[in-house]
């Protein structure tokens, strides 16, 4: 069977995801590989939780924070490109820009007194950090819709909401999805820092490994996080392809 071109990246990403899920579940495999890489280490594998457990924690953290980023970032980008939000456009872009340049570790430190230890300060830090690509790509995608297309739509009697959802968003989908992809992939890497405030995830073996000077733990956490990022990138690339209207495919 020959796959249509737009399905190929999706199928490849699914295959990659399956492979990743299998690798994550093989605790003995991690033990033997890390054991052979660090023969002098008595305990080459992080003992407090399995790779599968750490990955699930990591996914929860990324899922909640990226989910919030999209839920807030995309509507925010839509709003500042409407006449009603145009006045806030500069403020919003300055704010999300600042959100990205402000180091997440510092956000964590600032959030701790307010939100304490655990998942929530990490979610807030990651949520803010991931906003920039989502908001700026939403704005860029909507701005790239030709004025003449919108003019024709108005001239035919579409109202603003209909133009936004049936014309502008489909035409901007590819650019918006590229922003989502960047945001999520960055988030997966940055989320390892969240272990510092006890949010768990794949940052645990990294931070734990640094404190007990066990480089095997660090490699374990970093490898799993990197693989997760690659898989997420592939899945989102597939989604990007599927959400790109056929009429826009080169």
């Amino acid at each position: 069977m020959i796959l249509p071109p737009r399905m190929r990246p999706v199928v490849a990403a699914f295959a990659g995801t399956m492979l990743f899920a299998w690798i994550v579940g093989q605790q003995e495999l991690w033990a033997s590989v890390l054991g052979s890489l660090f023969p002098e280490s008595a305990r080459p594998v992080y003992p407090a939780a399995t790779v599968a457990e750490l990955t699930m924690q990591h996914l929860r953290l990324v899922g909640i924070s990226s989910g919030l980023t999209l839920l807030v970032g995309i509507p925010l980008g839509m709003w500042v490109t409407r006449p009603s939000g145009a006045d806030f456009r500069e403020i919003v872009s300055a704010a999300v820009d600042f959100g990205q340049t402000f180091p997440p570790v510092a956000v964590l430190a600032l959030m701790m007194p307010i939100l304490g230890f655990g998942l929530w300060p990490a979610v807030v830090a990651l949520f803010l950090y991931g906003m920039f690509p989502v908001v700026s790509n939403t704005v860029a995608g909507l701005e790239a819709v030709p004025r003449t297309v919108i003019d024709a739509a108005r001239g035919m009697g579409m109202d603003r909401a209909r133009i936004l959802f049936t014309v502008e968003m489909p035409l901007a989908a590819r650019i918006i999805m590229a922003g989502v992809r960047t945001s999520v992939v960055i988030n997966i890497g940055t989320a390892t820092v969240a272990a510092a405030v006890g949010a768990g995830g794949l940052g645990d073996p990294i931070i734990g490994g640094i404190s007990v000077q066990n480089m095997a733990y660090v490699l374990q956490g970093a490898t799993a996080a990197a693989l997760l990022a690659v898989v997420a990138d592939g899945l989102l690339a597939g989604a990007e392809r599927l959400l790109t209207p056929r009429g826009l495919e080169a």
């Binding site: 003449t148 001239g155 035919m156």
Partner: peptide
Amino acid sequence: RRHIGYVIQSVGLFPHL
């Protein structure tokens, strides 16, 4: 506008349809 035909120089066809 739904009862008035409108044609412009740049056409403005919806590229995704």
